Simulated scan of single mutants.
Amino acid sequence: MTRPVRVAAHLWPGGAPDYATWRAAVLRAEEMGADAVFGYDHFHKPWVRRGPEGIEIAPVQPDVTNFEGWTSLASWAEITSRVEIGLLVTGIGYRNPDLLADMARTVDHISGGRLVLGVGAGWYEKDYTAYGYSYGTLRSRMDLFTEGVRRIEHRLGHLTPPPLRKIPLLIGGGGERRTLPVVGRYADIWHCGLDLETFRRKNDLVKQHAAAAGRDADAIERAANWSGPAQADALRAEGVTLFVTEVKPTDAGYDLSSLKDMVSWRDSVT
């Protein structure tokens, strides 16, 4: 299956001066030529840092300006006209999965069929504890995730009216024991933030899980984080077609220069 190369902006709300600034960035990303615009599903901005073993949660997690993702998506569905919209990614433990499917169907209708439903197991403990959800264990969260994805797929097939299209299910993560089997069975898009060699190995596992589920692995779009044209060229050679740049706000707003670079690169390779 041949797919077009696409680029997306992942616009964090946490730390933005106000909602209007975040909203304006969504519109600017569409005007600049993004194929998709994503928010996140956190009730607080996660403060993370790069440690010796990868990304770590910073010891201090101050509260800053933040906005809820799904109500924002309903607004984006009205104010945009072309881009796909979604969250990277919805924490499965925050909402009843059948309700989440109905929310997704509704936003899909508001947008005219442009929603991408991103889901993941959830990881940021502060979101759980501050809002009264049980954080549990990694195992319990993965159990909820696996069952939740199954319920979402079932509910989307039983809503009246149905979605305007088959809503693409984006699954984020690279866990080999629990996440990748769900990717192989259910995902329309698999998003990961992996280096080239790790991506190759885990992509082989996705192909195996898809085959075991009786699916064509090529039906799953591969998505990765943007880290420049050279890395994108290498990942594109491995089958990645959706590239995502993460943009965090400052007091001055959003710097979308990385999106500009991505759009130029996309247009040069297509």
Score class of each variant (00 low, 15 high):
Arg155Asp: 03
Arg155Gly: 11
Leu156Lys: 08
His158Gln: 13
His158Ala: 14
His158Cys: 11
Thr160Pro: 00
Pro162Ile: 00
Pro163Lys: 01
Leu164Phe: 04
Leu164Met: 11
Arg165Gly: 01
Arg165Asp: 01
Arg165Asn: 01
Lys166Pro: 14
Lys166Cys: 05
Ile167Phe: 10
Pro168His: 04
Pro168Gln: 02
Pro168Leu: 07
Leu169His: 02
Leu169Lys: 03
Leu170Val: 08
Leu170Pro: 01
Ile171Gln: 08
Gly172Glu: 03
Gly172Phe: 10
Gly172Val: 07
Gly173Val: 07
Gly173Arg: 10
Gly174Glu: 05
Gly174Gln: 07
Gly175Pro: 04
Glu176Phe: 01
Glu176Cys: 03
Glu176Gln: 13
Arg178Pro: 09
Thr179Arg: 07
Leu180Phe: 02
Leu180Gly: 00
Pro181Asn: 08
Pro181Trp: 04
Val182Trp: 09
Val182Phe: 04
Val182Thr: 12
Val183Gly: 09
Gly184Asp: 10
Gly184Phe: 08
Gly184Arg: 11
Gly184Cys: 07
Arg185Trp: 02
Arg185Met: 08
Asp188Lys: 11
Ile189Leu: 03
Ile189Thr: 03
Trp190Cys: 03
Cys192Lys: 00
Gly193Asn: 11
Leu194Ala: 04
Asp195Phe: 13
Leu196Ser: 14
Thr198Ala: 15
Arg200Cys: 11
Arg200Phe: 08
Arg201Gln: 12
Lys202Ala: 02
Asn203Lys: 09
Asp204Gly: 08
Leu205Ile: 14
Val206Asp: 09
Val206Gln: 11
Lys207Val: 14
Lys207Asp: 15
Lys207Tyr: 14
